[in-house]
Design a protein around this nucleic acid. Structure first.
Lengths: 320, 320
DNA sequence: ATGAAAGCGCTAACAT
DNA sequence: ATGTTAGCGCTTTCAT
């Protein structure tokens, strides 16, 4: 039992000191494979995601903040969410056993077969921005719907009545909530949803270039465009510039997430600040608490996003 | 010796098949802590870096491509390069032992005390874009100097004679090479280096806003500005827009790296495409080869960057 | 070419 | 409260 003074309550102060001194002089470092094997824990958590992006950077940063405090390390595991081998990959990662727990981000956190798999594997898992409203699901998300609702309210107060929306991937359920919030805002202002003004990209900058052309080169131009993320908003803005439109004098554009991109484009984007790093910190704390058998306060946590008004939005143009 | 048919030459075909069948039916998965302990290898490599960014995303992506092929996993370890505890952190990461090898990126790969530490620990290490020209150093980098030289040549051919430079962190040695390339280009064209036109940011977008103001709000305005990376170039561009300057009609701006940002700003940036993912793939292959005792072809590899001409550069304005 | 057995460095259970 | 010991599941060496 010699060096069980990791956190044991039953040790006399004297022996504790004696051991600490010995560890000091021998420069003792516990051997991690040894502990892993004996304790059947790895002190490693896995972060599985679809593709690297600034989104993932912020998530990693939050997870790592928690890991650092709790003496865990982070294994990252990007994958292709359309890959049929995905199931096997995840299976190997947890049954090897390589990791103690898993953090899943969209769109993986929304995939029913992935959910079924982690259930089957009985591996501790927490998801980010997943669809589940179930009280027993360990998940952390933002109030996507409400925040976009508020953003639209801000826009209609500025006089905008011709609002368009650039939607994202349907696999990403949080996106659907944002669109719902957009519709809530329209309804509030007594506005109709014009199907011509709803287009869909695949969350990437490139995909939204086409969306921008559709929206801006048509006869019936909106005066404000809400986008499901910042990358797509940046693309819309580029198309606007190239079409000789002034932002925000001629057209207002909004993003979602407050990615670094949002403040680096010109004019800087009005957007919704999604506190991803903080969310990831909560998520990993939830996971680690579960791992050591603690019952966490909330298993289904909502972190509020807030609206950030920058330079890409302004009053609706008066003459049409 | 039962399951040593990992890659053993001395196995009869029949027994091999027999074992494979058994492994199949028993759904046998090797236990990784078991192998780690017995073989004293972890099948984990560590990627240590300063801060998360799109740079790191691209590096991770390259490393992971190699890891995937070679049945290694990736442990990421961000740190604060000014933290005095950094040495202990790295020490723990490798002596635990948690990782078999290390990949270091700038500015860590340029820090003498980090280099001394990994030498002392005798841990397999490869660096990215590090300063070392030593033939025995395992490192992968680009021809920073030459490529910036060529970029300046392109600019002077467009008629630019008033060239400014936005430098980055001095700790990042590759940055210094870029500046040298800039000076080479000036010399080629018979131009003097004007100290007023050399400013320094800290590699971030935010820091370069101030640089942009200095360069563009002064009396003596340059007609082209080369930046040590894309983020700073994006900031200069923003300042230009805000000052009512047209890009590239009034001012040409170039970046370095071909970050996603480079193609997402308006107008899109002329820049140097640094094939980071490919470099990271080479680096991790170098590391893994070393780990299994193979002597790699080149220990000091240079991957060529090439110039990407987009919309932020054009002929020098004729009237001043 | 294949089976047998001894550790790798820990943790946890047991004995004191 | 502290010392002692039996595995954890592999790899590797030694016998056969």
């Amino acid at each position: 039992m010699s060096r069980v003074l990791y956190l044991e309550p039953k040790v006399r102060e004297s022996t504790k000191l004696r051991l600490e001194a010995a560890m000091m002089t021998l420069r003792y470092r516990p051997n991690s494979p040894g502990r892993m094997l004996a304790s059947s824990r790895t002190y490693l958590i896995g972060l599985i995601y679809n593709d690297a992006s600034s989104y993932i950077n912020r998530v990693q940063s939050g997870v790592l903040q928690t890991c650092r405090d709790e003496h865990y390390d982070l294994l990252i595991h990007p994958c292709e969410f359309t890959d049929p081998a995905l199931q096997d990959e995840i299976r190997d990662l947890v049954t090897a056993p390589r990791v103690d727990g898993l953090i899943l981000v969209p769109p993986l956190s929304d995939m029913p077969d992935v959910k079924a798999l982690v259930d089957e594997l009985k591996v501790a898992t927490v998801t980010l921005s997943s669809d589940s409203e179930a009280a027993d699901a360990d998940t952390v998300r933002t109030n996507d719907r409400e925040s976009l609702h508020e953003l639209v309210r801000y826009l209609t107060r500025l006089g905008h009545r011709r609002l368009a929306y650039v939607d994202g991937r349907p696999e990403h359920k949080a996106m659907a909530k944002r669109f719902l919030g957009f519709q809530d805002g329209l309804k509030d202002a007594g506005l109709e949803l014009n199907p011509i003004w709803v287009v869909r990209g695949d969350n990437t900058f490139d995909s939204a270039i086409e969306c921008g052309k559709q929206l801006l080169h048509g006869k019936d131009r909106p005066t404000a465009i809400c986008c499901a993320n910042d990358h797509m908003a940046a693309a819309i803005m580029k198309v606007a510039h190239e079409s000789g439109l002034r932002v925000p004098a001629d057209i207002s554009i909004t993003g979602f997430a407050d990615d670094p991109t949002a403040s680096q484009v010109w004019p800087s984007l009005t957007t919704i600040r999604q506190p991803l790093t903080k969310m990831a910190r909560h998520a990993s704390k939830l996971l680690l608490d579960g791992l050591r058998g603690l019952e966490p306060e909330t298993r289904n946590r909502v972190v509020d996003a807030d609206i950030v008004i920058r330079d890409s939005t302004g009053p609706a143009p008066t003459r049409l």
